[in-house]
Simulated assay, not measured.
Amino acid sequence: MKILILFLLFVFIVPDGFTQERNEAKPEWKIFFDKYDATGTILVVDARESPEKISIYNKERANKRYSPASTFKIPHTLFALDAGLVKDEFQVFPWDGVKRGFEPHNQDQNLRSAMRNSALWVYAGFAKELGEEKTISYLKKIDYGNIDPSTESGAYWVDGKLAISASEQITFLQKLFHNDLPFQIEHQRLLKDILIVEAEKDWILRAKTGWEGRYGWWVGWVEWPSGPVYFALNIDTPNRLQDLYKREAIVRDVLKAIQALPLNK
């Protein structure tokens, strides 16, 4: 009986991975946000070390849920592949002829270009074909954020109730890196391939931006031979389009500071 009580105490009292003592608050990273006149949070998990090192700027915000916006294209791609809505990265989705404000959206897309160009209309088509019931099933399967795809209008991952925190983004990315999500390994590998932003001989940067209008994301990881360095950034974007470059700029400055990206990148 005493052993059982001790076990239960351990299970319910030991904090999760992003709140353990080995986590390190990084108030000094404020300089990177101040440099770009930005307000937000960044969480970095450096798995090049053992145990992995978890660094957080603005921990309170890192645990607050926001609309995932286009970062949701990461799990959404797995949903579409699993449901057979898309066969591979070469399948073409004909442009619907609707003129949109971002010119790269106004053309035929495949899975790779839809991810790179963040073509919402392609993923809106996936959402329509999947339906809410199937979507909820997938969200539960991967324990994604608040698991609520309801919306009064617009895409549920931008304008609806779906929400996720920076810390939850990292947890999801870690599972994806290790092919540990409940989907075919081939699909997870394909997804990681179309997430490549930049690569050199000894490192690969895989990431996705997101923008809800009021705030923006950049989430992903840098792969090194010694291990991955995961990151999730969320910032306010009061100046809208003018603020979007700040997402990548801040993350790159942080990663360079911890030698997770070369200084010339």
Score class of each variant (00 low, 15 high):
138 Y>A: 08
243 D>E: 15
193 D>R: 15
265 K>G: 10
89 E>G: 00
90 F>P: 00
141 K>V: 06
76 H>L: 01
179 N>D: 15
243 D>C: 11
200 E>C: 01
118 S>G: 11
140 K>V: 00
94 P>L: 03
130 L>Y: 12
95 W>D: 01
98 V>K: 08
242 Q>S: 15
187 H>A: 15
92 V>C: 04
5 I>W: 03
35 K>S: 04
1 M>G: 10
156 Y>H: 08
179 N>S: 00
216 G>E: 11
236 D>Y: 05
4 L>E: 13
37 D>G: 11
219 V>S: 15
241 L>G: 15
118 S>C: 09
192 K>T: 10
211 W>P: 08
25 A>C: 01
220 G>L: 04
207 A>P: 02
140 K>H: 00
104 P>N: 00
78 L>H: 07
54 I>H: 04
233 L>A: 05
69 A>Y: 02
110 N>T: 08
35 K>W: 04
132 E>N: 10
224 W>R: 03
53 K>D: 07
88 D>S: 13
115 M>G: 08
191 L>H: 05
210 G>F: 13
221 W>G: 06
223 E>I: 03
3 I>M: 08
172 F>C: 12
171 T>P: 10
145 G>S: 13
106 N>W: 11
255 L>T: 13
98 V>G: 06
34 D>T: 14
113 S>I: 04
4 L>G: 03
74 I>Y: 08
196 I>R: 15
58 N>S: 05
255 L>V: 13
115 M>A: 14
146 N>G: 11
213 G>Y: 14
168 E>P: 04
129 E>A: 09
50 S>F: 13
181 L>K: 06
128 K>I: 13
46 D>L: 13
97 G>I: 03
152 E>M: 02
1 M>S: 11
50 S>P: 01
175 K>P: 06
262 P>V: 13
199 A>I: 08
7 F>I: 13
196 I>Q: 15
88 D>E: 09
18 F>K: 07
197 V>H: 02
5 I>V: 12
166 A>M: 12
187 H>P: 15
86 V>L: 08
14 V>W: 04
107 Q>V: 09
119 A>F: 10
187 H>K: 13
178 H>R: 14
36 Y>K: 09
158 V>D: 10
210 G>H: 06
31 I>M: 01
100 R>K: 05
96 D>G: 03
241 L>Y: 14
149 P>T: 02
162 L>Y: 07
16 D>G: 06
149 P>V: 09
16 D>C: 11
